[in-house]
Design a protein around this nucleic acid. Structure first.
Lengths: 328, 328
DNA sequence: AAGCTTTGTGCAATCGTTTGCGCAACTTCG
DNA sequence: CGAAGTTGCGCAAACGATTGCACAAAGCTT
C-alpha cells in the first residue's frame, strides 16, 4: 500500500541499509548513490514511517499535552505557546483533555505513556493526588503548569497566583474600594486556592475585615459570576468591588450587571484573572491579572527538552502583572 | 528501562505469544494462565507500547487535526467537538496548527501522514490549491471542515455560509436597516468568499443597491473591525448596519464603537458570525450567525471512521441559524 | 483402543526502520 | 610491491508487539 524504504531501495538498486543512510545523508555513502536514492524516493513519494523509526530510536519526537478543555481561552493560550515552542524544536503534540475530571486526567497520562511520548505537560492539573500511584510505573518526565508535586520525575511551571491576587486587591483598595468580594474557582484547582489565599492575605495586610459572606464559591464558569452577583445584591451593605477567580467568571458578573442595570465600575468594580485575549475587546474592557502564558508555555517545553538531554532542571516561577483597564 | 511484554512473559513463565494473547483475553488461553499473566503485568506496571502495536496492526488509532490556531474560539470549539467524538471512539488527536499559512498547512498534513495517523481533519483549510500535489502520495483519508475539494480521498463537512450570511442580511433589512456594510475575511478562506457571496446575493434579492464602499477587507481579527469602523465614519451617509466575517471582527467594531461613543445598535447594528461561547456574555450580547459546530465536529470524525470501515461516505452540509441577541 | 476433536501453548515471521560490524575494492605510502 | 588506511556498501540484529501455523496433551466417540 504505502511505499516503504524497501521499495525505494529496490528502485535505486541498493540495500535497505544503504537507502536509509543515503536519505540520512550519511558521510560514507557516495554522492552518486545518494542522488539515485533521493530520486527514487521522490518518484515513489516515499514518506518515512515515524512509527517504525520511533520503535528503533526509542523516541517519538512527540510531546503529550493534557488540559482541561481547549475551549477555555486561558488553556488555549497555553496550548498555543506550547505548540509553538514544541514545533520550533521539531516536536508534535498529542492532545488529550480531562474536562476537569481527575479520572480522565490520570487516564490521559497513562494513554500518553503507552504512546511513548517523550514528555508530558499537564496544564492546570486536577488530579495530582492520584499521581503517586501512576508515577510508580510512568517513566516519562512530567511538567505541571500551575501545580507542584514533589517527585523525582515531576517539575513545574508556576505563576505566582497569590501575588497576583494580592496585587489586584491592593489596587482596588488603593482606588478607595473597601468591601471587596471574591468569587472562587474549583476546589481541585491549586491556583484557585492560592488566589483565595492572596485575597485574604492582602485584606489582612491592609487591615480590612475579612467577611466570609463576601466570599462566593464558583467553578470558573460565567454562570458562577451571574449567580454571585445576584447573591451579592442581597447583602447589606453590598460589596463595592469583586475579584474573580478568572475572566470568564468576571464576564458572568458583567453580563448580569448589564442585564440588571448595575453600572461597572461605578456601582461595582470588577477584576478578572488570566487576561484572556478577549478581555481587551469588550465594552468596557476588563481590568484583570495577567500571567505570562507565552513564557510559561515555552518554559514548559524547554524544561522537558533540557531534561531529556540529561541536564538538571528545576521548577520555574513567574510573577503576575495587573492589566489596568476600565472595570475598576 | 520500560518493561516490555517479554518481561511480563518471563515473570509469568510463558512465551511472549501467550502473554500477548492472555492480555488480549484470547479464548484459547486458559483462565489460570490469564490470571498469572495479568498478575505479572500488574506487578511490573506493564504498559503496552502503542508504537509497536501500531507497526504490526498498521493502524495508530490516532486522528490528525490541523487547524489555524487553537486560540480562535471557533476553531477551539470544533477541536473540542472532534476530540470528544474521537475520544469516545477510542482515538487520540495529533494536533498541528498552520497559523493561516498554506505552507505550514501542507507541511502539517505531510507530518501527520509520516506519523501514520488513521485519518486527517483539516479545520478551515487555507491551502487546498496545493493539495493535489501532496495528495498524489498521501494515502490517508482527509476530511475538510469548511472547504471542499473534488478528490477521491477527500470529503467535506460544510456549513452553508452563503445561506447564513443571507439570513443575517435579510434579518437586518427586515428590521429596517438599509445601508448594510460587510467586513470580509481572509481571501484564502472559502467561507469568507461564501459569506461575501451570501451578502451580495441577499442585497440583490431585496433590491437594495450594492455599494462597494460598504465592503471592507479583513483577516478575521478584532483589529480589522476597529479599522473598518473608523473607515465607515468617513462615508456619507454612513452605513447603519454591518455584517462581520466573524465574531472577533464584530467585537473589534464594538470595542471601537465603545471608545468612540457610537451606540450599538442605535447608531450602528452589528451582526457577527460563528456564535463563539463568549458572544452571549458580553454587554450587549452579540447577535450572530451560528454554525452547528458540535454536530460538524462529530460528523467529521464519523465520516473518517465509517470511511475506514469501508463504507461509502459523502460530503455533509449543515445549515446556519441566526442567534438574535442585542446588537441588531 | 484407535481415531477425532478440542484445548492450551510456543515458534517464528512480520511490521518498517536504524545501526554495528564485516568485507571488498580502491588509495596511499614506505 | 605489500601493508595500512579509506571508501562504499550490505548482512543481520535489534525495537516490541501481533498472529498464522504447528503440535502436544487431554477429552470424547464408537
Amino acid at each position: 500500500m504505502t511505499v516503504s524504504l524497501k521499495d525505494v531501495a529496490q528502485k535505486a538498486g541498493v540495500s535497505v541499509a544503504t537507502a536509509s543512510r543515503a536519505l540520512a545523508d550519511h558521510p560514507r555513502i557516495s554522492e552518486a548513490t545518494k542522488q539515485r536514492v533521493r530520486q527514487a524516493a521522490a518518484e515513489l513519494g516515499y514518506m518515512p514511517s515515524a512509527i517504525a523509526r520511533s520503535l528503533v530510536k526509542q523516541e517519538t519526537r512527540t510531546l503529550g499535552v493534557v488540559t482541561t478543555t481547549v475551549t477555555d481561552p486561558y488553556a488555549a493560550e497555553l496550548v498555543r505557546a506550547v505548540e509553538d515552542a514544541a514545533g520550533a524544536a521539531g516536536y508534535t503534540l498529542l492532545l488529550l483533555t480531562s474536562h476537569n475530571l481527575p479520572r480522565r486526567e490520570v487516564a490521559a497520562i497513562r494513554a500518553l505513556q503507552e504512546r511513548r511520548v517523550d514528555g508530558i505537560i499537564v496544564i492546570s492539573p486536577r488530579g495530582v493526588e492520584h499521581y503517586p500511584d501512576i508515577l510508580a510505573h510512568v517513566t516519562v518526565p512530567l511538567v505541571l503548569v500551575n501545580h507542584t508535586l514533589d517527585h523525582p520525575r515531576v517539575r513545574s511551571v508556576m505563576a505566582d497566583n497569590r501575588q497576583g491576587a494580592r496585587l489586584a486587591v491592593e489596587y482596588l483598595v488603593d482606588l478607595g474600594y473597601r468591601r471587596v468580594a471574591f468569587i472562587g474557582g474549583p476546589t481541585t484547582s491549586r491556583s484557585a486556592r492560592e488566589r483565595l489565599h492572596g485575597y485574604t492575605e492582602a485584606l489582612r495586610a491592609m487591615e480590612l475585615p475579612l467577611d466570609s459572606r463576601l466570599m462566593f464559591p464558583g467553578q470558573g464558569r460565567a454562570e458562577d459570576g451571574r449567580r454571585a452577583l445576584l447573591a451579592m445584591l442581597d447583602i447589606t451593605p453590598p460589596p463595592d468591588a469583586v475579584l474573580c477567580y478568572n475572566d470568564l467568571t468576571a464576564y458572568g458578573i458583567l453580563a448580569q450587571a448589564w442585564a440588571l442595570g448595575v453600572r461597572v465600575p461605578d456601582d461595582l468594580a470588577v477584576i478578572g484573572f488570566d487576561n484572556i485575549p478577549f478581555s481587551e475587546l469588550t465594552a468596557p474592557p476588563l481590568t484583570t491579572v495577567a500571567q505570562p502564558t507565552e513564557a510559561m508555555g515555552h518554559t514548559a517545553v524547554a524544561l522537558l527538552l533540557r531534561w531529556r538531554r540529561g541536564e538538571a532542571v528545576d521548577t520555574v516561577h513567574f510573577d503576575c502583572t495587573l492589566v489596568e483597564r476600565a472595570t475598576a
